[in-house]
Design a protein around this nucleic acid. Structure first.
Lengths: 181, 181
DNA sequence: CGGCGCATGTAACTTGTTACATGATTCC
DNA sequence: GGAATCATGTAACAAGTTACATGCGCCG
């Protein structure tokens, strides 16, 4: 059982989904703290099914024949709960931009500023997406018992992205003031 | 050439180092945005040497026979500069704690609070290490042309870790207020 | 009828970690 | 003499990405 398995089980604990939908949800809702590729998701879905933790829904009314919707089984929920109770292990962060910033006395300020702008813009977009998700959620708040917790996660995304953006702005200013001299 | 190669080249551009020292520097100075294992570093050092980008220093006065100190060659510096100018590509963040927070309506508030405390403490330690590095650097500021840039990276580490810690505190409060009801 | 979004899947590859073996030097 | 730290290295494994192949349904 790897981390990917638990993400899948977690999402399936909310509602039945296809592999494609799982990927999309992770890309949108989890984008600021998680990612998965199809190359991870599809083989894991198969494995979880073989282990008897999830199953295909037998919806005979299939609009699209090439579509498999999975739902969680009690065994899967048990595995999920067990994992949730285990201490948190890994946390991995790799920010190439900071590596370049660290060594940036070797390049021109202009080049570094352009890297920073890219970073800032990417996180401004992220922040907008998160704020959109927040508004959508607040419109239907309470419909699901997980909403308050999801809101805390969204709050994390906002704070961190704001910090990223502010730091970028300050650093660009710093580089520009140096360039003038 | 992979990312690990450039981290190594970057560090060797400042001073000659052994593989062991490289690992230690990454663990201490880059801990909040990067990591490498020996299993990555040693094979890459060999490969960089074969490519002619770095070389062993021929210090005949070797205190420790089983020690290889590498230094960067002009070709290696050129490769480093080229990489620094390329647009930043990857940024990967994986925070298991947020995954658990997202699904935490399935577990007790106590369990989640304990996960959060672990997270908070880990980042309080990180922040202390960063602030120590900052003080040390400010004591010798200006001795190296990269200092102002390094300081910007340190500032990033402080801001982000402070944001992590504040968020943890708020989230713990939130969970504790819920538990009382 | 062409393009886009939905949808599944895999093989080859790259990347990264862990566990282990080995041994010198330093410090108490 | 024993523990800690410095030091190198690899093999097995685990994790993750990319590129590709395939095809349906919908919209304009």
């Amino acid at each position: 059982m790897k981390q990917t398995d638990y993400v899948i089980l977690g999402l399936l604990s909310e509602s039945p989904l296809t592999g494609y939908q799982i990927k999309r949800i992770i890309d949108i809702r989890f984008r600021f703290f998680w990612s998965e590729s199809y190359g991870q998701i599809y083989p894991r879905l198969k494995s979880l099914q073989i282990q008897g933790l999830i199953e295909e829904t037998d919806s005979t009314i299939k609009r699209n024949r090439s579509q498999k919707t999975y739902q969680i089984k009690p065994e899967g929920l048990a595995a999920l709960l067990h994992w949730l109770e285990q201490p948190v292990e890994r946390e991995s962060v790799r920010i190439e931009l900071l590596l370049k910033m660290y060594f940036s006395h070797l390049i021109t300020a202009d080049t570094m500023v352009s890297h920073l702008r890219g970073f800032q813009e990417a996180h401004e977009k992220d922040l907008q997406l998160i704020q959109m998700a927040e508004r959508e959620l607040k419109a239907i708040i309470g419909k699901d018992p997980n909403h308050p917790y999801v809101l805390r996660v969204i709050d994390f995304g906002e704070k961190i992205n704001e910090a990223y953006i502010n730091w970028s702005r300050e650093t660009i200013k710093f580089l520009e003031s140096r360039r003038e001299k």
